[in-house]
Amino acid sequence: MFRPCIDLHEGRVKQIVGGSLDEAAPERLRTNFVSDRPASWYAALYRRDGLTGGHVIMLGPGNEAEARSALAAYPGGLQVGGGITAANAAGWLDAGASHVIVTSWLFREGRLDEDRLGALVRAVGRDRLVIDLSCRRRGEDYVVVADRWRTWTELRLSAETLERLAGSCAEFLVHAVDVEGLCRGVDLELVERLAAWSPVPVTYAGGARSLEDLERVTEVGRGRVDLTIGSALDIFGGTGVRYADCVAFNRRWLERTGPGIRSAAPGDDAGDPGRG
């Protein structure tokens, strides 16, 4: 299944090459796309087409207003991440997020802080929490990275890790950082491992460049791993994938499998924000 996204940087919808975002070295930033449309336009588009489970990610400060506008345009239809803590998580749910996504705050000095994870579960509940396990490859392993993907943690993805963390969250979000934003193809080995290891739904992001990638992730992921497509998508200035084709793919998939909890859309109509 296809899941949509809205990445926010400096208050605008952008597509950024994953490993290039570094406040200490802004000259390294590589941007594939900057939209002239607000986040709410994309949220209304996703709402119209019944796409749920998409994520709004705030990449740094100055994005809160745009994130809130997107959530208001599609209440209950989008997840939100970036700067989420136990102190502010409930407020984002009140603003309209279906789930909060948390990464860096869960780690201190490269180690997963179980106390912080417990505080988040108490604040919003397991069913409203998504743990971001974005990772980079190190040897034969995939290791979680935090702090906008710059800091290696001690957490290695494995069946045991995902089984343990699944007890505290509803889903996982996993960016394959080494291929994020490059449109050179997805990391199918990572997708295969996620499908085998995770007892809860997973959204994979990174490297998607064609509709065939969506088909392959759905096949290799055995229908248990969803795919986010960013820079290759035509609504983000890409040429590899048409948004309309992704919507059609989801509809065909649901016709074969029936609606599930991940794909059930709110019943009311958001109107037509237009395309193109």
Rank of each mutant, 00 (worst) to 15 (best):
G181A: 08
P273R: 11
L182Q: 13
S231Q: 12
L8T: 02
R252T: 04
R137N: 10
A65V: 15
D234F: 02
R136C: 05
R222K: 15
G82P: 04
E163Q: 12
W197M: 01
G238T: 00
L211W: 07
L182F: 04
E180K: 03
L214C: 00
V143E: 05
G83A: 13
V144E: 03
W92S: 05
W253D: 02
D234K: 03
S35H: 12
R252G: 03
M1P: 00
H175R: 09
R209V: 04
A232F: 01
R224P: 01
V34W: 09
E23Y: 15
G110Q: 05
L165Y: 01
L45F: 12
L93W: 08
G81K: 10
T161G: 00
C246Q: 03
G139H: 07
I57H: 13
T52L: 10
R138G: 07
A86N: 00
N250K: 01
D213L: 05
S134F: 00
V177F: 06
F107E: 04
D113W: 08
S263I: 09
R3V: 12
F172H: 04
P75C: 12
R242F: 02
R275W: 12
G54L: 12
C246W: 02
V186T: 09
I261F: 08
L165W: 00
L59M: 15
V202P: 02
H9I: 15
A70F: 09
H55Y: 12
G54D: 12
T52V: 14
G207C: 05
R108H: 14
G267D: 10
G221W: 02
A265D: 08
L8F: 04
R68Q: 14
G260D: 15
D127L: 09
A208I: 03
V241E: 04
G118I: 07
D245G: 03
V247W: 02
A97P: 03
P266E: 12
L162T: 02
G76M: 10
S168M: 04
Y42W: 09
V217D: 01
L112D: 07
C183T: 14
A196Q: 13
P4T: 11
W197A: 02
P259H: 13
L21Q: 07
V217C: 03
